[in-house]
């Protein structure tokens, strides 16, 4: 069959190593480029002062504040919704029931919906129908819809990983299911919840398309949640597409955003690993 020739065939090894090198090179190129052009402009003043001259000069202070406010609204709405949905799915719903299937199917679709479609929906519903206009509130609520599937999946996985013995023991002690859930299952599932929370924050910080038509472009310091506020990602987009000569500020902002996200993802990975390690050695 000529298989003997194949045994010593070095070609696949070469190709696989070449792929790995190529991907590594691309990654180093992107991150190196951001660092090289971005670090020079980065300073405490850049992080705290207001942008001037359409963002070419000055800093990103108000933009960081807007980003945090949008994130706060998003999490304040999505956390209670997400955790209770996850509790219902993991603890109270038969996986085969129509209700469980319906919610799960909806979540699958929700997870796949392109962010620009969330933007369309947020604009039509929150900004126009509910009359919130281009505001931090509209943006945060739109993002809340977007991060729900992530939150629910991780929390649900966390709850399902709690051993059945806990539930049986609690029942044997005559605890109500409410008490079991609050005092026993939820604390045991906290790491899953944290992973979901951190991943959700990551997705929300990175989002741009869903925010352009919901939270808007205004780069002043927001005075209330009904003010329009520009998120960091929208700032990068605007500087690079609409402002000639905004590249150096865009580089610095992109560096800030990337570092934030790498930190957030690092925390998620670390929590997940810590959790796994703890589960294996109880």
């Amino acid at each position: 069959m000529g298989d003997r020739a194949k045994i010593d065939n070095p070609l696949p090894s070469i190709i696989i190593w070449a792929i790995a090198l190529f991907v590594t090179a691309a990654f180093c190129w992107i991150l190196g480029d951001l660092l090289w052009h971005g670090v020079g402009k980065l300073s405490w003043a850049f992080l705290t002062t207001a942008p001037q001259n359409a963002g070419r000069d000055g800093g990103i202070g108000p933009i960081l504040v807007s980003t945090c406010l949008i994130l706060g609204v998003c999490m304040a709405v999505s956390l209670p919704l997400g955790i209770s949905t996850a509790m219902l799915l993991a603890e109270f719903t038969n996986d085969e029931s129509w209700f469980g299937r319906l919610v799960r199917r909806s979540l699958d679709v929700l997870a796949g919906v392109p962010s620009i479609v969330f933007g369309l929906f947020g604009n039509a519903f929150f900004a126009v129908k509910l009359g919130l206009g281009f505001s931090i509130l509209s943006g945060g609520l739109t993002l809340a819809c977007m991060v729900l599937p992530i939150l629910i999946r991780s929390t649900e996985a966390g709850l399902r990983a709690v051993p059945a013995d806990y539930r049986l023991g609690a029942a044997a002690l005559g605890l109500s299911r409410t008490t079991t859930l609050w005092k026993l299952l939820l604390p045991a599932a906290t790491p899953g919840l944290i992973v979901g929370l951190v991943l959700g924050i990551g997705r929300a910080i990175a989002e741009t398309a869903a925010l352009i038509f919901t939270s808007g472009y205004v780069d002043r310091m927001p005075e209330s949640l009904l003010d329009s506020g520009r998120s960091l990602s929208v700032h990068i987009f605007d500087l690079s597409m609409n402002v000639a000569g905004g590249d150096s500020s865009a580089y610095a902002s992109a560096l800030v955003l990337s570092v934030l996200l790498l930190l957030v993802n690092g925390i998620a990975t670390w929590t997940a690993q810590f959790w796994l390690a703890r589960r294996i050695t109880p």
Binding site: V23, F27, Y251, S258, L261, N265
Partner: peptide, 21 residues
């Protein structure tokens, strides 16, 4: 870890890098 980091870079940063490089 590198692949995970690559997954964490936001799309607007990819777009920006594409635009300027």
């Amino acid at each position: 870890r590198l692949i995970e980091l690559l997954a964490g870079i936001p799309s607007v940063v990819y777009g920006f890098w594409g635009l300027v490089v």
